[in-house]
Every structure is written in structure tokens, then in C-alpha cells.
Design a binder for these strands. Structure first.
Lengths: 196, 196, 196, 196
DNA sequence: AATGAATGAGCATTCATTCAT
DNA sequence: TATGAATGAATGCTCATTCAT
């Protein structure tokens, strides 16, 4: 499983070879097919497995009652750390975004996005009511923009292409610029949301 | 060309087969190799072709002396329109983000990002001097955040996964929500950059 | 293996197709690649296999303390017999002489020639000291000439072109003229080396 | 034609591409097929062309009435020089020796070898009668051995494999060791034939 | 006469999947 | 239950040959 996750993360679905996964795992191809009917099932399993980890993490952050800016900082730091410790999961997620449009991919995306979408949207709506966030914004759309920021934060930490892109912009490896990222992202969000 | 663009956009570089492209185009594989030395060259040609179109469009916008908010609106509308008219090109770009790490893909990405990176960074830096944008932000990092916003705008318009994701957040097809997107994105950027 | 040896012998390295080898062997291409990583490895294996046989045979002859003329006769008879029993191996070697200049073919040739070169040269040098061979000759060059004689003996027995050429000269099939070959070649060498 | 000769010499029949020949010649493939029905015919033409040159050269040497040792030295020097000046022809000849056993190759070999075979055999037979060469040898077989020596001389000068082999034996590039070759080869032949 | 675009079979190699052991 | 040998279709690419211009 660990090997499969690594391989899928590194090479994407199509370019991952079950023979390679089996060899690196020290088991036989036959054994893989004992537990999974085909490559797609193996991939699905790995994805669901990874998603659970990801969701657990986000769930921990959500319910706290802290100041919204402090919460945001916590989320940013957590996402950064998670992307560094488990880059494969983030890469796996990223690889999903360019996969073909199969039924099972759609289901996965529903599962991934639906949770955060509703959490963020509700949080913003509530904050609007309490006056913490300005009232002239569309909560759903701003939730979307917020998630974009968070998603890119993770991709830029874990995925080769986005890492390189970050480097082109800031001239620094993502690893070396944690404080810059946290500080500037908060500045950005604070103004954008008019956080009080 | 059209077929090749579609195939590359749908399957990415690695998983597009020249044999398939040839078959769908109704020509022979040999004919493809008459005009392109190899798959990489075909891909590069198609990418450069699309990039030039995009760059031309952006270049037209860049030097104008207009109010920065008006400029931003123009860029957003341009990108949205481009993504709708040439979704394959955006998908192509998106497919790059999960492709393998070959030398030639890296060069391509350099070209794509380097141009916008320098334009955005410089624009922000200049706007800081004229007082149009607040001075406590890092121009390079904010250029990066700005490009994130623009990139996601395009992906959400053209790429299946991001389209679906947008729908999950806002409950609307991207096609139907142009005005929402323009208005809210500008609101977001205006506050974030403290545009005057 | 047998089929591969035949095909390589007949067509040389470049012009032997693994698909053909597999088909003629009644197995699938995949099966070939199960045992050999690539064409080069298959070729190398077959060559080394054959070379070992030949080298073993020559090694047995080398260290003996017999009269040098008797030794020469033994070598000639051994080579003739080997060429008749394993013509494919000799053809294989011959095919090397016109093959492309790839790294791995060069290494193969180094192995083939280096062994006999040093054995022959040393043998001649020693024989010069004991007075068995005249002293006015260059041991290395005469070793080269000697190997030429032996090599042509084998090629003429096993390779179509050289067989035909032998026939043009002597009017006899090589198979039918063993005694002539042994007798006359010894006469030739004896005089040339002034064997005592 | 010049280009075709070079290509065939360098790559052999199978690995020479008519498209490459046409491109390097600056003419179209169609033009090649105007004059030659197929690749085999082109090759045959080139071979016959080259052979004429080769034969002309040998013919000049044959009829002289000089001392047989002097003649031999002339032949050796001529062959060496020829191989250096026109290595392609020699390589072409060498490539013949490993080609498949087609009808047209057999005819070529007949043409190439028959002439020298009869000249050498007759020369030796005559020399035996005049007492210049000892009488206990078979003229045809010794003619064959003699041609072996000459052939190897040419191959070792012009063909990559045999050049390398020569180097392994003597430690010198063939180019640098002309005098050694002439001197030692004569020593070898003189003794072998017991030239007076 | 000359061109060169087009064809399509061929090659080395990979890999998802099956199945006898 | 577990193995891994075997299959064969698929891929990127080449090239002898044809034929409309």
C-alpha cells in the first residue's frame, strides 16, 4: 500500500505499473490481483485511504471557536506541515485534477470538495452575521477563493510543477519560505475578507 | 492539429498516442512524422501555438495606463473568454502540472510562468510606488497569489475537475456565472491589494 | 535459445528481430523479455555462452608441453571440428565484424580477441627463447598472422561467403578437405615460423 | 553515388536508408527510384562499380615479370595504400561477407574471388616449376592462404572491427605501422613459400 | 523528368491481466 | 493462498516504396 501510494503519487494513474508496485513491495503480481480486481480498484482504494487522512486533519481544525485570523493561521501552518510530511497524498489529489473524466473520479471529487465547501461557506456566512467579515461578499464564492488559496498552498509545497512555479515567482524554495508564506498569505486574506 | 490538441488536452502528454491521433485524423502515422520529428515536438508546437495567442492577448493589456482596477477587470474578462473559446489550450496547460518531470516539459513551464511572473511582479511594484497599492506586501508573493487567482479562473472554466469543483462551491455552472465571477473576484482583489 | 542463435548468426545483431525469434520459437515476445532485459542482453548471453565453449577448448590445449607443431595440429583440428559442430557461433562472431560500432559490441570484441592475442603472443615469445621459433620475427605481429590463419579456417568452414570463396580457390567443399587443410596449413605455418 | 557508397560502406546493406542517401545527396527519393528499381539494385550497382576499381588495380600488378619477392612487396604496399585511400570500397567488400545468402551476393563473390584465385594459383604453380617456390605445396590452397593474408591486410586497414583487432594484437594503429607490416609480412611469406 | 507527401508494415519494448501450479 | 510465467495488444518511431503533381 505504501509503495502503491508512492508510485501513484509520483507517476499518476496511467503511468504507474502494477508490476513495479508488486516488485518494490516484494510481493507477486498475483497477490495484488487477489485483493484488487484491477488497477482502477487499487487506485480507488488508495485514494479513499488518503482522503480519510486528509479529512481527519481538516475536521480537527474546523470546530474551534477561536478568532478567525488565528484559525486561518493555524490552518495555513497545518496545511504546510501536512504537505511536507505527506506530500504523496497531496500529489495524489493533484493527479486527480487532470485524470480522464471517469465516473469514479467524479465521485471522488464530490467527496473531497463537498466537505470543505460547506464548512468554509458556513464559516464565512456566520462571520458575516457577527460582523467579523464584510457583508458585500458572496460566501460561496469567497469560500471557493479561500479554498483556492489553501489548495495552491499545498500543491506548491508538494507537487513538482507547482513547486517550480512558486520558485519562479519568489525565487525561493517553498521549504525555505514558510514564514513569508504565512505572513503574506494572512495579509492577503485579512484584507480580502476585511477580517476584524 | 485540431485532433492532436484535443487528444493532448484530454489525456496529457504521456497518455496521448500518436497512433490514435493519426487514426482519428484520418492520416497515417508516417504523415505525422513528416511534419514533426517526434511526439515532444508536436506537443511543443501545439503548446507554443496556444501560448502565443494567450501572450499576445495579455501583452495588449499590460502597457495601458488605465486604472489598475479596470485593467484587472479586463484581464479577468479576457481570461474567461479565452478559456471558453479555447478550453483545450487551458486543459493542455493543466495537464502539464501533473506530467512527468522531463527536461522539455520543464522548459515549457519556464516559458509559461516566467512571462506572467515578471509582468505581475513589476506591475505591483510600480503600483506600490505610485501609492495605488499598499506598501506592506511582498510584490513577488502577491504576484504569485494574483496568478493563482487567474489560473484557477481559467482551470475552473476549462478543466473538467475544476469545473465540477466550482459547481460544488457555487452551485452554478461556470458558464452561467460570468458576472458573479467578475464582480466578486474584483471585490476580492480590490480589498486584498487595497487598490485605490 | 537455439532459434535466437540461428537468427543472430544468419542476420547479425541489428537485423535480427526479437518478434521473429519469438514467433519461430513458438513463444510470445513477452516471454523473451521475461528472461532478457533487452536485445543486447540476449545477444551477449548467446555470445558468451558460445565463447566459453571455445575458450575452454583452447585453454585445454594451451598449457601442454608438447612439441609446438603437434600443438598446432591439435588446434587446427579442434577449430575445424568446432566450426562444423557449432557453425552458428562462428557466424555470430563473423557478423560482429561488420556490425555497427556500439559500445556493447566493442566490449564483446575486446573479450574475444584479447584472450587469444595474449596466448599466441606469449607462446611465440617463449618459443623464440627456447629456439623453437626463429628470432627475427615480431611475436605480436606473427601472433596476429597466426590468428588470421585460424580465423579464416573457421570462417571458411562455417560462413556462407567464406565457404564459397574457399570452394572457388580449391574446388572442394570445406567439409571434404579436412586432411588437405590440416596438412597444407601445417606446412605453411611450419615454414613461416621455422618450427623446429 | 559517392554518398550511397559511403553509406553502404558505413552501415551495410540493411542499415542504409535510401531516404538518408537521397537527403545527403541533395536529391529526392523519387529520383533514386527513377534510376534504380529498389535498394538491392542500387547496392548491386555500387558494388560492381567499386569492384571494377579494385580489379583494375590488381590487374596492373599481375603481369609484371619481376622477382616474386619484389612483386609481393609491391602488392602489399599497393593494397595498404588503396585501403587507406578508398576505405569505403574495402568496407563494402567486407560487408558482403556477412550478408544473407542471396543469389546476387553469390554472383558478386564469384566475380570478386575468381580472378585473384586463378592469378595467384597460376603464379604459384609457375614459380614451382622454375624452382622459385618449393614443390611440396598445393598451389590452390597456398593461393588461398596468400589471399587470406592480403585480404586481412586490407580489412585491418579499412574496417573498424579488424582495425581494432589489429590494435589489440600489436598495440599500434594500422596507420602508424606500415613499415612493420610490410617487413614482417614479407618475412612471413618468404619463409612460408620458401621464396628464393 | 523530378519531387516529396503519404502509406503502412515493421521494430524494440512495456505492461495489465490470466491461470496453471 | 500465493506465485510468477506467459500472453499479446499497444506505443513511439523508421523506412522502402508508391504516385499525384
Amino acid at each position: 500500500m505504501r509503495v502503491a501510494r508512492q508510485e501513484f503519487a509520483e507517476n499518476g494513474f496511467e503511468n504507474t505499473s502494477i508490476m513495479q508496485v508488486a516488485k518494490k513491495s516484494g510481493i507477486s503480481v498475483g497477490a495484488v490481483y487477489k485483493y484488487f480486481d484491477n488497477k482502477e480498484q487499487l487506485f480507488t482504494y488508495i485514494m479513499h485511504d488518503g482522503l480519510s487522512t486528509l479529512e481527519d486533519m481538516l475536521m480537527e481544525l474546523a470546530p474551534s471557536e477561536e478568532d478567525i485570523l488565528i484559525k486561518a493561521e493555524k490552518i495555513i501552518r497545518t496545511l504546510l506541515q501536512f504537505s511536507k510530511e505527506q506530500p504523496e497524498l497531496v500529489q495524489l489529489y493533484c493527479s486527480l485534477t487532470t485524470g480522464g473524466n471517469t465516473e469514479f473520479l467524479n465521485q471522488l471529487s464530490q467527496r473531497i470538495e463537498a466537505v470543505t465547501a460547506s464548512i468554509y461557506t458556513r464559516t464565512i456566512a456566520v462571520a458575516q452575521e457577527t460582523g467579523e467579515v464584510r457583508k458585500d461578499i458572496n460566501p460561496a464564492f469567497f469560500a471557493y477563493l479561500l479554498d483556492n488559496v489553501f489548495m495552491m498552498l499545498q500543491f506548491s509545497t508538494a507537487c513538482p510543477y507547482y513547486k517550480e512555479r512558486f520558485f519562479i515567482y519568489t525565487g525561493k524554495q517553498v521549504e525555505d519560505s514558510d514564514e513569508l508564506i504565512v505572513e503574506q498569505t494572512l495579509l492577503f486574506l485579512k484584507a480580502a475578507f476585511n477580517f476584524k
